[in-house]
Design a protein around this nucleic acid. Structure first.
Lengths: 137, 137
DNA sequence: CGTAACACCTCTAGCAACTAGAGCTACAAG
DNA sequence: CTTGTAGCTCTAGTTGCTAGAGGTGTTACG
């Protein structure tokens, strides 16, 4: 049995975050010691690693809850799990596209200032005047 | 003079958000009508457009506050404004890199499931077993 | 067996950047 | 003069944690 501190060290998830996941229903309420401290099994470590990995991939708590639910019903079709992953992929791609547009705009803004004083500053002017932008946003 | 609703329509910033910006000190407290309703000038519309544009570019409220502060002192050197833009550019690039790594991983996960049932589902297994990943995260 | 050091407990509040709702008042048109 | 839309303030909720206060459990050493 692991203490919450050991679990935290082994997964890289901070202690308050583990308790938060318990509160949110991602982790089952842990067994307790005589003195009311949480004790964890190997399985719970696996579960927490799953959660961590999914969070690193940008899945929401809600999506993870669904996946955990699914994994408790191994006989069900896995189309739902696929859908969650695909949706996430679509969202990530959209974010990348948006950020790339921001990147080129910021590049322009950050590299084109040749004034010395704020009154001539391209950064300030570019932010004040949307028309200087190449893209919509 | 514009009402808050007209200001909102012209800038695309929602009404409660405008009030929020006022509270946060990005917008000065607006002039009021007899009946205590906010009335805005052209200058305030420009200010709000500036804020909107900066937010679209991912600048934090804090960074925007600094830029507004700078723009009130046109005789100062604009190095600070440049620095804010450059920092933002660096942050955006880092985010893009991270998202690209997630993208390739999610691609793999979402496209490789050939089981029909959750017990064979690649999505679930990939999330449970970090070792299947190609990248660190 | 005592005590010090550290880990753990619960509870509350805070972060960013809004958003939503309740319950009320102002204003413009007919 | 009434009706409908738009505005007001205030409070609380969102997401995913994180920090702190104030108290208790556990363990190692002497």
């Amino acid at each position: 049995m692991l203490t919450i501190g050991e679990l935290s060290r082994q997964t890289g998830v901070k202690i308050p975050t583990i308790r938060y996941y318990e509160q949110m229903g991602l982790m089952d309420a842990a067994e307790r010691s005589e003195g009311n401290q949480r004790r964890y099994t190997r399985e719970e470590l696996d579960r927490l690693s799953f959660i961590r990995h999914a969070r690193d991939l940008g899945l929401t708590i809600e999506a993870i809850r669904k996946l955990i639910d699914l994994s408790r019903h191994p006989e069900r079709p896995c189309a739902d799990a696929d859908r969650i992953a695909s949706e996430q992929l679509r969202a990530v791609r959209a974010k990348i596209e948006k950020l790339k547009r921001l990147e080129s705009e910021l590049e322009r803004i950050a590299n084109h200032c040749h004034g010395d004083q704020v009154k001539d500053c391209y950064v300030i002017r570019a932010l004040a005047h949307h028309e200087l932008c190449e893209h919509e946003h």
